[in-house]
Amino acid sequence: MAGSTDVVAALRAAGCVFAEDEARLLTAAAAETGADLDALVAQRVCGTPLEHLLGWAEFHGLRVTVAPGVFVPRQRSAFLVEAAAELARTRERHPVVVDLCCGSGALGLGLATMLAAEHIQVTLAAADIDPVAVDCARRNLTPLGAPVYQGDLFEPLPEELRGCIDILLANTPYVPSEMIARMPPEARDYEPRTALDGGPDGLDIFRRVAEGARNWLAPGGHLLVESSEAQASVAIAVLAEHGLTGRVAESEELNATVVIGTRPAR
């Protein structure tokens, strides 16, 4: 391509809303890594997520490493991190945090970094069923000394965490199966379906997390899960079935809904 104007034009023609910003980022990535700019632009035009091409995503003020085949953290999930931080500050000891269904580990990384800036240290662990996601999360979380386990939900967690988790982040997939086909191609075609598909009503994985959460949470500990606004009332009922007191937190600014389940303190 002749220059930045051509890159912007190609991206705009492909429907990229922030073509100028993406052109700047792709150009910088090509210069930093030695990658071919034309090849990067061609991949982006074909729908490859920008973050997969850059190798990172901006989340909660951090650069989070992402890789092809890994779920890209959404900006609305910053509200989940903020809600978790508010609850973590109320714990009488340094909180134990687990990022379940962690993907890149962005939620755990964001929460631990935010609290560290307030001189609140956390014991952090993460887990995911996808080996590609686990590898990516380890690149983000190993510098914090946080282990990342591979396996299905709670199964790979060490037994010493049982009954000790103060903050359980679980950004479970919550898109109803029939809605996957309507998602943007960059999500539908490039992110793992296991990170998107929540079953018929979008809450299949959430139900499994809710079922196991009480045994893993410390007394007074909290489970935080992102959902749609329409799913929240059903999610609250599911939490109640499993002995957790539920409430809903919402951010109009980020268009985010978080369902919070709390284990009774006694």
Results as ranks from 00 to 15, higher is better:
Ala213Thr: 04
Leu107Ala: 05
Ile129Met: 09
Ala83Leu: 03
Thr113Cys: 09
Ala187Asn: 03
Asp130Asn: 15
Tyr149Met: 04
Thr194Gly: 11
Glu82Leu: 07
Glu22Lys: 13
Cys46Glu: 14
Ala31Phe: 03
Asp128Asn: 09
Ile236Tyr: 00
Val98Cys: 12
Pro143Ile: 15
Gly108Ala: 05
Ala237Leu: 11
Arg74His: 04
Gly34Cys: 05
Ala127Phe: 08
Ala13Gly: 05
Ala137Ser: 08
Ala256His: 00
Thr90Arg: 15
Ala39Ile: 00
Val97Asp: 01
Ala213Trp: 00
Asp152Lys: 11
Ala237His: 13
Gly145Asp: 09
Glu186Ala: 08
Leu107Phe: 11
Leu224Lys: 06
Leu50Gly: 07
Asp201Ser: 12
Leu26Gln: 04
Arg162Ser: 08
Met179Asn: 08
Thr5Asp: 15
Arg162Thr: 05
Thr172Lys: 00
Ala2His: 11
Leu80Pro: 02
Pro68Gln: 06
Ala112Val: 00
Thr48Met: 13
Arg208Ala: 11
Ala84Asn: 07
Pro95Gly: 02
Asp128His: 05
Leu100Gly: 06
Arg247Cys: 02
Cys136Val: 10
Leu50Val: 08
Val259Tyr: 06
Glu92Trp: 10
Gly163His: 10
Val17Glu: 15
Glu92Thr: 15
Cys101Phe: 03
Leu161Cys: 07
Thr90Pro: 11
Asp189Ala: 12
Ile205Val: 15
Asp201Lys: 13
Asp36Ser: 09
Asn255Ser: 12
Leu169Asp: 02
Cys16Leu: 15
Ala146Trp: 03
Gly69Thr: 05
Leu254Lys: 14
Asn255Glu: 12
Gly145Glu: 10
Gly55Trp: 07
Asn215Glu: 14
Met1Thr: 06
Leu115Ala: 03
Pro264Tyr: 05
Ala83Asp: 02
Leu53Trp: 07
Leu168Asp: 07
Pro49His: 12
Met179Arg: 14
Leu25Phe: 13
Thr90Gly: 10
Arg188Lys: 11
Ser177Pro: 01
Leu100Pro: 06
Ala23Arg: 02
Ala210Arg: 04
Gly103Asp: 06
Glu186His: 15
Glu92Phe: 09
Gly69Ile: 02
Ser228Asp: 12
Ala67Trp: 12
Thr48Glu: 14
Gly220Asn: 09
Phe71Glu: 03
Glu226Val: 02
Val64Met: 08
Val134Arg: 11
Leu109Ala: 07
Ala125Thr: 04
Pro95Ala: 02
Ala42Tyr: 01
Gly105Val: 06
Glu32Trp: 01
Gly47Ala: 10
Thr245Gln: 14
Gly105Arg: 04
Gly163Trp: 03
Ala126Thr: 03
Ala195Arg: 00
Leu157His: 06
Gly3Ile: 01
Val97Glu: 02
Glu253Phe: 12
Ala35Ile: 00
Arg266Gln: 14
Gly220Ser: 09
Cys102Gln: 10
His52Gln: 14
Thr142His: 14
Pro49Val: 07
Leu11Lys: 12
Leu168Gln: 09
Ala116Thr: 08
Leu50Asn: 11
Gly221Tyr: 10
Ala237Gly: 09
Leu25Gly: 08
Gly34Val: 00
Asp130Tyr: 11
Ile260Pro: 00
Glu252Cys: 05
Gly105Glu: 07
Ser77Asp: 08
Gly15Arg: 11
